[in-house]
Simulated scan of single mutants.
Amino acid sequence: MDDDLLALLALGETAGTTSDLAHIEECERCTDELASLTDIVGLARSGGADAALVAPAPQVWDRVAAELGLAAGAAGSSTTSTPLPAPAPSASAPADVIAPVVPLDSRRPRAGRWIAAAAAVGLVVGGGATWWIANRPDAVTVIATAVLEPLPGWDASGSAAVETLSDGSRVLVVDLEQSESSEDGFREVWLLKPDVSGLVSLGTLAGSSGRFDLPAGLDLDQFSVVDVSEELFDGDPAHSGDSIVRGPLEA
């Protein structure tokens, strides 16, 4: 789901199509994200238009600047609105690569960070609210996404996204629109090289959605294709060769 749409809905705007709203109701990840953003907006508005502005401690602004990737002092040291620098455009992916992933310093801000930027320019009242947003334990940044298309013999579809958490760790989030596996098998999530010359198993997908921690040293430039396979209870840890869906990660 588009982050800007979730941000607009959190702000109380009328946005999105009927199918978009239906997806949010059915998708646990989108529902949680919308609830989190709505909490932030509620906190921002709780002070009221007549509330006195409270200057936060200097370290609060340092944390906001660090979260937004601003130079030291860019966020300012008072509650006066300060224009934020425009984000640098991300590099275009080469056309001949199946699943390019941009470096981790070229990330597209998620809606949560957009609202954190609003806090930095004075849209959130009070230093306490600014500190809470800048230190959200669940703040994430999406660095790549994939559309998962069905392989021959399957009619499933889905999506995947690579998120970085506030502590720098990475998670692959997989959402699959397909019925449960048969009683004789289970579904397993993999990252493949584009030429299928190497693969890494991330674990079993139970249900339609799953979150999988990525090893710190795993190079997403090499293992850039998401694959979900149907596996049998045969004791063989290797890929069965029966892929349900597959798709390249794109920044």
Rank of each mutant, 00 (worst) to 15 (best):
R110Y: 00
P58E: 09
L249W: 02
D20G: 10
L192D: 08
Q178G: 13
W190F: 14
L11C: 06
L220S: 04
V245N: 00
D175Q: 14
S36T: 12
S179C: 07
S36L: 08
S46H: 11
S169Y: 11
S77Q: 15
N135E: 12
E183V: 15
A134G: 15
S243E: 01
P248S: 00
E67H: 15
V162Q: 05
G42N: 11
V102P: 02
L8H: 02
A71L: 15
A51M: 00
D227H: 12
L165D: 08
L172H: 11
A99R: 03
D221C: 03
R187Y: 12
G203E: 05
R110F: 01
V147L: 00
A118D: 10
I143A: 03
S157F: 11
A251V: 02
E177R: 15
D184I: 13
A99V: 03
L5G: 05
V41T: 01
P109A: 02
L37D: 00
P56A: 10
W131F: 12
L5W: 04
S243I: 07
D234C: 13
R170K: 15
G126N: 03
T204C: 01
L11N: 00
T31V: 00
T17P: 06
L9T: 00
L218I: 13
W190A: 03
D20T: 09
A119L: 10
A117E: 05
V97K: 09
E26L: 15
S78V: 14
T82D: 02
V60K: 07
A144W: 02
R211W: 03
A120V: 09
G153M: 02
A51N: 00
T130N: 10
L192Y: 10
V60A: 08
L5S: 03
V102A: 06
S81L: 13
G185R: 11
A22D: 11
A146V: 00
G112T: 09
G112A: 12
F223T: 04
P87G: 07
G127V: 06
A146M: 03
E33W: 03
I143W: 02
R136L: 13
D184Q: 14
I115L: 15
V142S: 07
D3A: 12
I24F: 12
D3R: 06
S181F: 11
D227Y: 13
V174F: 13
E188R: 15
V171A: 11
A10C: 02
D3T: 05
S157V: 09
S92V: 11
L218K: 11
L172K: 10
W131E: 13
D39A: 14
A134C: 09
D50G: 01
E25P: 03
Q59L: 10
L104G: 06
V101S: 01
D184S: 15
L34A: 04
R29A: 11
I98F: 01
S166F: 13
A35E: 13
L21P: 10
D138Q: 12
R45N: 07
S159R: 12
L148G: 05
L151N: 07
S46M: 04
D227G: 08
S90F: 07
A57K: 13
G127Q: 09
E188G: 07
D195P: 08
W132S: 09
L165R: 15
L5E: 02
S81N: 13
V245D: 00
W131M: 09
P56V: 12
G122Q: 09
